[in-house]
Structures are given as structure tokens and as C-alpha cells.
């Protein structure tokens, strides 16, 4: 094959772009879901209003 290095380089650029285009949005979704789980855990750990007596409640 003539100009083999150029053909390989061009197809490699295209393949790398496809890998990037596949991986990046999947990582973003995983990040959002992780953040949602952390938020839910924080909310669950927060004491409810009735358990903590306040000055007004006394």
C-alpha cells in the first residue's frame, strides 16, 4: 500500500475520535448518577425536624 503511514494516521485519528465520543458522555452520565446517589445519602443522613428540639419547639 502506498502512503501507508498517512492512511493509518488518518484512520487512527477517526477511531480515536469515536472512542472519545463514546466514552466521554458515558462518564458524564455515571458522574451525574453518582452525584444523585451522594445527594440522596446526604438527605437521608440529615436529621429530621422532629428529632432535634429547637428553642421554639420547647
Amino acid at each position: 500500500m502506498s502512503y501507508r503511514e498517512y492512511v493509518i494516521a488518518a484512520y487512527a485519528v477517526f477511531a480515536l475520535m469515536l472512542v472519545w465520543d463514546y466514552v466521554v458522555p458515558r462518564l458524564a452520565i455515571a458522574r451525574e448518577l453518582r452525584a444523585a446517589r451522594r445527594l440522596a445519602a446526604r438527605k437521608a443522613a440529615r436529621p429530621t425536624r422532629n428529632e432535634t428540639p429547637t428553642e421554639l419547639g420547647r
Binding site: 448518577l33 453518582r34 452525584a35 444523585a36 446517589r37 445527594l39 440522596a40
Partner: peptide
């Protein structure tokens, strides 16, 4: 939609 209930359910 972060913080919405459906996102929390999906994440869990």
C-alpha cells in the same frame, strides 16, 4: 434534573 426524585430513583 439533579435533585429530582426520578433521578434519585434511577441512580439507586
Amino acid at each position: 434534573e439533579a435533585g429530582k426524585d426520578w433521578v434519585r430513583r434511577l441512580a439507586e
